[in-house]
Each structure stands twice: as C-alpha cells, then as structure tokens.
Design a binder for these strands. Structure first.
Lengths: 223, 223
DNA sequence: TGACTTTGACAAGAGATATTGTCAGAATTA
DNA sequence: TAATTCTGACAATATCTCTTGTCAAAGTCA
C-alpha cells in the first residue's frame, strides 16, 4: 500500500508548469463558453460543444468545472468584472464634470455590448431563468449597477439627502431603464445610434436627479 | 378502403360535447403549467410533472400542445392578456385625474405579482433565455408596457410633442424601471410596502414627464 | 535512449426525457 | 343491454446528455 504511491507527480511539460497548463485550458474553456452561450444560447449548448470549440475533450471540462452551470457562472462573473473595471476607469479618469464622467461610463457600458454581442446575449438574456443560484448572481450584478447609479446621482446632486437616497428604489429603477434600453437595442440589431441612447439615458438621469434634489431641498425651503 | 371509414365520431359525453371536454383539459394543462413553471421553474419542469399536476396523462398534453415551450408561450400570453385587461379597466374607470389612474394601474400591476407569485416568477424570470421565439414574446409584452407608459405621459403632459415622444426610448426606459423594481421586490420576498413602491414609481414618471414637458415647451418659450 | 507523463479519441453506462403506441376497463349512449 | 367511445396506466422506443473510464500514441524529460 505505502510502497510506491507514486502519485503521478506534476512536472514541467513543454516548458510550462502543470498548473499553468491547466490554467490555460481553463481559459480556453471560458472563452468557448462565451462563444457557445453567446451564440447558441445556454439551453441549447452541451458540454461536448463547449469542448469542441475549446479544442479539448470532456475530461478537461470536468478538470476545471463541475458542470455547465458552473461555467456559466464563471463566464458571467468575468463579464461583470470586466465591465466594472472599465466603469471604474472611466469614472476615475477625472476629465470634465461628473456629468461627463457619467456619459463616458454609459457609453462604455453600451459599447461593450455592441463590440461583442455575445456579451450582450449572456449578460442580458442567457443569465436569467437558469437556476436559483444563477438568479442570485444576476441580482448581485444589478445591485452593483444600482450602486453605480446612486454614486453618480450623489456626485452630481450633492444636495440630495444621502440617507434618503440610499433607501430609495429609484437607482434600482434607473438601472432597470439602462438594462431595458439595452434589451431593445440588442433585439433590434443595434439600429439606434449609440449617441441617441446615451443622450436619452442622460435625460433620464438628470431629470431624476433634479427631481430628488428639489425634494430634498424643499424641506428647508418651505419651512 | 372507402367501405367503413368510421372516423371515431365525436359525441356528447357526460353531457358535454367533445370539443368542450378537450377545451377543459387544455385549460387544466395551462393551469398546471402556471403552477409548475411558476414554482419549479421552466427548466426543471418536464411534461410528466405538468400532466401529473393537471391530473391527465401525456397523451392529452400532446393533444393540445406540441411541446413544453408551446405551453409556456400560451401560459405567458394568458398572463399578459389578463394584465392588459386589468390595466385597461383601471384606466377607463374615469375616477380622478390621469395621475390617479396611473397610480391605480401601477398598483394593479404590482399587486398581481404579490397575489400570485407564480405569475411574477414566470413573467419576470422564467420567460427569459428559453429560445429566440420566446424572447420575441417577451419583447412584444415589453413594448405593450412601454406603449402604456407613453399613453400615460401624453395624457398627463399634453404639451409633450407627440411625435417626439413616439420616437423616444424614454418610455422603454421607464418600463424597464417598473420591471427591475418588480424584480427586486420579488427577489426580496415582497418586503417593501406596496405603497412605497408605487409612490417612487410615480416619482419616476412625474419627473420624466415634467422634464419632457419643459423640453418640448422650451422651443416656443425661448423663441 | 528509456522511462514516464500527458493527451486526445473514443467507449460505455447511467439517467432523463420526449413522444408514440397499446390495451383493458370504465363510462355513456342509443 | 349491447355497442362504442373515452380514459388512464403504462409500455416501449428513440434520443440526448452527463460523466467516468480505458488505452495507446505522442511528447518530454533526464
């Protein structure tokens, strides 16, 4: 038993360490997931297809993921993280007013969908109705978006009562606007010019900001 | 061959005509679909379950529907039609101002989800990511909702330039707000009081209406 | 070169599910 | 009562798909 438990020691192969090789495969599978889920759709994709696209066999799928849903979660998180990073970069690039920054973030947000419709398909459609777990992922991402909206509103309209804003569902509503407009945009094949979309989104934001601003201020004005 | 083509003639049975009996079964299956899709979820439901809930066997499923997706479409349409009817009733009940009417419609819209969470589950979650065909259904329903919003805006703010409004994506955005707020409400187990939700939704509407009103009017005001 | 690891192709069994078909008995009508 | 339709239970087939396992060849290292 304990004589020769030669546990298939991992070693350098092709100049690359074992864990790196595995990471490579994992990455390929994630890219394949993006492709398959984003074009065929999650429901119509099976493990064999994913592996075919990745140029790997099923064994390697199970090396990195437990099942299809697992891969979807990873792909989705990657998309959200990338978007979040881009948004933060656009925000912290301190050019112009906060309003300009918001427009930049919006443009970035929509442009990502246009540049790679697979992202749009997954982020806006495929992610929904898969399972309770995946629904939770979606919910988290939506909250991040709502928080971003909240942050923007507070930056542009500092008079807004912060605590009141933090309890309001209006940022959630605005996040919904952004998403629904994206839905329509995608389903219509991106015919609406991006500039129009951004300008109308900004209208939505600014109108709501002004409204909240007035309400917060009215307390002292009326008293 | 043409001797005795006795084609199993339909006849009255249990005092009910054949086509009525079939319609009855169909109805039971739709109700079963609502139950199964709305609690277990579309993906985790199979035909046998649906038939079990309906108290019928598989033969009768295929008598009325071609496949699971077919049933989902019918169930969804039924939900949308009901909602549409209720909305129209609340609108045409000419009590109070158009603003009151809008609040009534909103209350009705959200209350339906609270009264029967299965509706919420299907209408808000299960419907997405099933197939291209079903996505189209969803898109249609969202457009109906956006049209309703548009109608309301025009009633309350008649100064808004009608043609401009008809091309704007802002009603789509507001429809998205309503939906996203519903998402959060449902996922949080309906903890937010309905009155709060309605009041904040009305805030969204009124702020946007005023904003559009100003923009439309500004042409003549500034000239 | 020789030993060993990694890899890809494919087999294979388990498990679901869709869909059609059979059949006997219950229910109903004439 | 006799004929016949309706109905539910279940069989059976055909497909998929997941998941694990086997194996030999190719690749790599020492």
């Amino acid at each position: 038993m304990s004589m020769k438990t030669k546990k298939t020691r991992s070693r350098v192969y092709g100049g690359i360490k074992a864990n790196l090789r595995q990471a490579e495969r994992r990455k390929k599978l994630i890219e394949a997931g993006l492709e398959a889920f984003g074009t065929k759709g999650y429901a119509k994709t099976n493990i064999k297809m994913i592996c075919g696209i990745a140029g790997l066999t099923e064994r390697y799928f199970y090396e990195s993921f437990r099942h299809k849903e697992d891969l979807l979660r990873v792909v989705y998180r990657e998309l959200i993280d990338e978007g979040q990073r881009d948004a933060m970069a656009a925000l912290e690039d301190n050019e112009g007013t906060p309003v300009d920054a918001a427009a930049r973030v919006l443009r970035m947000f929509y442009q990502r969908f246009y540049q790679d419709p697979r992202r749009a398909q997954i982020q806006l459609f495929e992610i929904l109705g898969v399972s309770k777990n995946i629904d939770r992922e979606y919910q988290n991402a939506m909250r991040l978006l709502a928080d971003l909206v909240r942050l923007f509103l507070y930056k542009v309209f500092p008079r807004i009562h912060e605590e009141k804003l933090s309890r309001s569902i209006i940022p959630t509503g605005l996040a919904g606007s952004i998403i629904m407009i994206a839905h329509e945009w995608v389903l219509n094949g991106f015919v609406t010019p991006l500039d129009d979309i951004i300008s109308e989104c900004m209208d939505l934001f600014m109108a709501m900001g002004k409204h909240l601003n007035k309400k917060s201020g009215s307390r002292s004005e009326r008293a």
